[in-house]
């Protein structure tokens, strides 16, 4: 075993990349949950986003177009969830599970012709001389545009929720949908939009895995990242900046265990691969004592008659 092969600077740079899929998906889910919708279909939307993005990027040769398609694919799938929970008033837990099961099947079907294909790679953003700063340059200024987009998204969601009227409306719907309805807010319409946003973000996160992290297509390649993103929203107490913190924590663990595998640590590979899931459980246990931050209407069905 030789731990000196793990370069801390490269580890931090890689951690940011490992965290981005979780970050994107969790930020989208955070918005949906702040509107009072618990969408357990994140895993399904991510994997559909992963294959939509992959297929379009391969066919068009443009990764950017792939990401647009991934967001569209994720949003389209989430529209099914929106229909089930907002129009036909189905149970959100069951509908979310259905979305994940359906998404896993659909992605496998769509991805049949793309196994073993190599996608076009996305160039890193060119910061010029900034990238040459020792240590900081490698950590901060040598990434692909989607990673920066993820960071900007967190800031935007934070600002939206905290400072704007739209954010206030979103939170009102999530805290008390009956009161929001009485105020004349369109509860269903707002929630559908929040669900679509969540779907688009999950799709982007999925495509980040298939186009940048891995980059190739295999069935079920998201491997539970969507579920970790769901856990992360709880971890973050429904606050955007804490999502960022949590995503980097999980990204760090994922990357570290991969590096340890590479360094040939005496722990078997399988047990190292368990670690992100075990840490998720541990974090959930530590943080689940305080549920006071959860949106009060989370997961409840709204019908104007009641």
């Amino acid at each position: 075993m030789d731990l000196s092969v793990i370069n801390p600077v490269l580890l931090i740079a890689a951690l940011m990349s490992a965290a981005t899929p979780i970050l994107l998906a969790a930020t989208g889910e955070l918005v949906a949950e702040r509107a009072g919708v618990l969408n357990l279909g994140v895993e399904g939307m991510m994997i559909v986003g992963a294959i939509c993005g992959f297929a379009v990027a391969v066919e068009s040769g443009s990764p950017a177009l792939g990401f647009v398609a991934a967001a569209a694919g994720g949003a389209l799938l989430s529209l099914l969830f929106a229909f089930l929970t907002q129009v036909t008033l189905a149970n959100q837990v069951a509908s979310g599970l259905a979305l994940t099961l359906f998404g896993l099947g659909l992605s496998a079907l769509l991805g049949q012709g793309y196994v073993g294909v190599k996608p076009p790679s996305m160039p890193d953003v060119n910061f010029g001389a900034l990238a040459d700063i020792p240590i900081l340059g490698r950590i901060l200024f040598s990434h692909d545009p989607v990673l920066y987009f993820g960071l900007a998204l967190v800031a935007a969601v934070w600002a939206l929720l905290k400072f704007t009227r739209a954010g206030l409306i979103l939170r009102a719907v999530g805290e008390n949908h009956d009161a929001a309805h009485a105020l004349g807010l369109k509860v269903v319409r707002i929630r559908v939009l929040a669900i679509l946003f969540g779907g688009a973000c999950a799709g982007l996160g999925g495509a980040y895995i298939s186009l940048i992290r891995v980059p190739q297509w295999t069935e079920g390649m998201t491997a539970g990242v969507g579920w970790i993103a769901l856990a992360l929203v709880v971890f973050a107490s429904w606050k955007p900046w804490r999502v960022l913190l949590g995503a980097y924590l999980f990204g760090g663990i994922t990357q570290l265990q991969l590096n340890l595998q590479g360094a040939g640590v005496a722990i078997p590979v399988e047990y190292l691969a368990m670690s992100p899931y075990l840490v998720t459980i541990l974090v959930l246990v530590i943080l689940s004592a305080d549920k006071s931050r959860a949106p009060a209407s989370l997961g409840r069905i709204f019908h104007a008659s009641s």
């Binding site: 259905a98 099961l101 896993l104 019908h303």
Partner: peptide, 26 residues
């Protein structure tokens, strides 16, 4: 017929069930 098509088929079944369930309560 691809194996994944059956998976989609099974997922669809759950979707329709949840949707039709609306008429049990409404």
């Amino acid at each position: 017929l691809p194996a994944a098509a059956i998976q989609v088929f099974q997922g669809m079944l759950l979707f329709f069930l949840l949707a039709f369930d609306l008429f049990t309560n409404f």
